[in-house]
Design a protein around this nucleic acid. Structure first.
Lengths: 140, 140
DNA sequence: CTGGATCCGGTTTGATACTG
DNA sequence: CAGTATCAAACCGGATCCAG
């Protein structure tokens, strides 16, 4: 009950600017959120959880890749606070903690998917640009 | 010329996981790129440039908001290297440098738009979650 | 006067070791 | 296994200084 119902406030931004009204207060608010969730680890964790479903702490860390426990803990806490993931503690002898995406988190994951698709489609362009840029710099 | 043509490699990821084949090497590659562009300032700069078009250094910094010149310079450099923005220097008496999105950068902006829309639609959910989480923590 | 490079202080991050 | 504690390193932001 959102995508379709959302007032078309920044829709014209999607295709192109039309240099227009967009509520500044709202934009500031949204901007703040973007600033907080547009984090490398947040994106990677969301993708991992979305792809694999419920995961335990260590397993999640392993699948995400090069993340330290500290950042994993920290990012997970932030995401939990933001309502993106649930943290379920099973009080058993060897501690067992499950992390899973909430509906909110899954929604964000779906939104990220277009970025993901974009990256998948353009990584070679990026690498090419990087090589060209490096060559340009090296030449100076 | 991308969204529609892109091979449906991780499309099943969009809706839900189906615990499946997705090329691991490709995923690692894409993951690497996501890790590099998933940056707070990168997103904010893309949005700003997409909304306002070509901008000068100082003007861009002002519109982005709370960014320091150092981070603006650094992020812009990275984005230039990645081929997301063009940096045009006009050799005039008062230095004049224009920054504009490339097609690649615009594409990323468009992809990121869904995240923007999501944030716009759910910021109240997030704030609610944060309040609940804070209360839960404070209560302990 | 603008873009941006440099130096310094504070914060964040990462590696390792330790506890429940 | 899941996290915390500790310390060193890297990074961020602000002010200042430099080049055109």
């Amino acid at each position: 009950m959102d995508q379709a119902v959302t007032p078309p406030i920044l829709y014209e931004w999607a295709g192109r600017k039309s240099a227009q009204p967009i509520d500044p207060a709202l934009e500031a608010l949204v901007r703040d959120i973007i600033g907080k969730i547009a984090d490398k680890w947040t994106m990677l964790i969301i993708e991992t959880l979305d792809a694999h479903g419920t995961l335990r702490f260590t397993e999640l860390g392993h699948k995400v890749g090069d993340i330290s426990q500290k950042m994993l803990t920290k990012t997970l806490r932030q995401m939990e606070a933001d309502g993106l993931v649930t943290r379920t503690v099973h009080p058993v002898v060897p501690p067992h903690v499950d992390y899973a995406l909430t509906d909110l988190g899954r929604g964000l994951g779906a939104a990220f998917c277009s970025v993901w698709t974009w990256a998948e489609a353009h990584y070679d362009d990026i690498e090419q640009s990087r090589a060209a840029f490096a060559a340009r710099q090296g030449a100076v």
